[in-house]
Design a binder for these strands. Structure first.
Length: 370
DNA sequence: GATGTCC
DNA sequence: TCATCTGCCACAAGACATC
DNA sequence: TGTGGCTGATGAC
């Protein structure tokens, strides 16, 4: 996932392009919208929400762990005055490693979207999604701010997320994926403080053009295609600087020593990075309404066999959050731990004793403020 | 805070 | 000597209710 | 289950 070793390469080659920011610096009085990488979010829930090692399921064997997680997390964010925008940044199926995986991923998204649309009484959008295979980028609301709701085609990936962010003045996009640099993505949040990666500065410090940097990323290894054997980050940078592009590199290296993958789709990958298709956000209709409690009960309880009490309690919390004006401190959601490097040393120092306490400070890990 | 449970 | 490859290992992974 | 760090093996120069 992402670009292999890109963070390390940037840290080595363009340290000045990385700035660390306190989370509070991103929020003013009226800017509390947070875009969240839904793929990572769903993944987290599928891994973490388990019972005896198995994901939660209804009687039909349908997985419900992700629904549980998304349901509670969305409510919790609303309660704290945050407008979550789940960004479903799917990938073009023709370049996916597994068609089956793509279908499964689509079904999971469909479930999530159904649940959230029902939660916000946006049944219209569910229908739209079903009929046109669109992926929705969705925002829930607080106070009297306008609703934020976007619909996008599943094939149109990260650029859409960025366009959405621009469109609705999102102040923070939480993601772990570093390939989003290629679309102008700035923020990376795995641990606090948040790291800002300034794309133009990266290009400036490494001394590459946008196109050359994309070729470099392809050589490092991206999700879309393989890499040239024997070419790591060091040689990749040297070769790009020397030859300018992958085509020239292929002409000038020994293909016996450095064979490229069979049917190497580097041009297609480059095309995706350079020219992702984008939907015009201004044409998207915004919708804003109260939670559709009955619809939610139908979906979550009747279909997915969630406890009706829990779902109704959740609906009450949403309604209450819209009526009230109190906002929790955003940083109260995040507990800060030490850096990655120091953590390992800490662990070593403490021997094999298993720490029961959780470390927190992961994106989307919202803990109740006290 | 620790533990069990959610589906 | 240096860069790359490979394998191994450590780590982290949700939220609520109840006691 | 995926990721990242570390390290020894390997190959190129």
């Amino acid at each position: 996932m992402g670009i292999h070793g890109l963070a390390k390469l940037i840290a080595d080659q363009a340290p000045g392009a990385i700035k660390e920011q306190d989370i509070r610096n991103y929020f003013g009085r009226h800017s509390r919208k947070i875009a969240i990488d839904a793929s990572m979010c769903i993944y987290q829930f599928l891994i973490a929400v388990r019972q005896d090692g198995n994901v939660l399921q209804n009687e039909d064997g349908e997985t419900t762990s992700h629904l549980m997680g998304m349901f509670y997390r969305t409510i919790r964010m609303l309660e704290h005055g945050i407008k979550p925008v789940y960004v479903f940044d799917g990938k073009p199926p023709q370049l996916k490693s597994s068609e089956v995986r793509e279908v499964v991923s689509l079904l999971i998204r469909l479930q999530i979207i159904s649940a959230i649309c029902t939660l916000l009484s946006n049944n219209l959008l569910t229908t739209t999604y079903l009929s046109t295979m669109l992926v929705i980028i969705l925002s829930a609301h607080l106070l009297n701010c306008s609703a934020c709701l976007q619909i996008f085609d599943v094939a149109y990936i990260h650029k859409i997320a960025i366009t959405c962010i621009t469109c609705i003045s999102i102040v923070l996009y939480i993601s772990l994926r570093k390939d989003q640099f290629l679309y102008g993505q700035l923020l990376h949040m795995k641990k606090l403080p948040i790291q800002e990666f300034h794309f133009s500065r990266i290009l400036q410090e490494i001394g590459l053009t946008n196109e050359q940097f994309i070729d470099l990323c392809i050589l490092l290894g991206c999700d879309y295609c393989g890499t040239i054997k024997g070419i790591g980050p060091k040689r990749a940078i040297d070769l790009i600087k020397q030859h300018g592009c992958i085509e020239e590199i292929l002409e000038n290296i020994d293909s016996n020593k450095h064979p490229s993958p069979e049917d190497w789709l580097y041009k297609e990958a480059r095309g995706l990075f350079l020219n992702p298709e984008v939907v015009d956000c201004s044409t998207v209709e915004l919708k804003w309404s109260q939670p559709d409690e009955d619809g939610l009960i139908q979906f979550m309880c009747n279909e997915k066999q969630f406890s009706e009490d829990r779902i109704r309690n959740g609906c009450k919390k949403i309604v209450k959050s819209r009526q009230g004006s109190t906002q929790g401190r955003l940083d109260s959601f995040f507990t800060v731990t030490g850096s990655l490097s120091s953590k390992r040393k800490e662990a070593e120092g403490k021997g094999s004793a298993k720490k029961k306490q959780k470390t927190g400070a992961t994106p989307g890990k919202f803990r109740k403020g006290k």
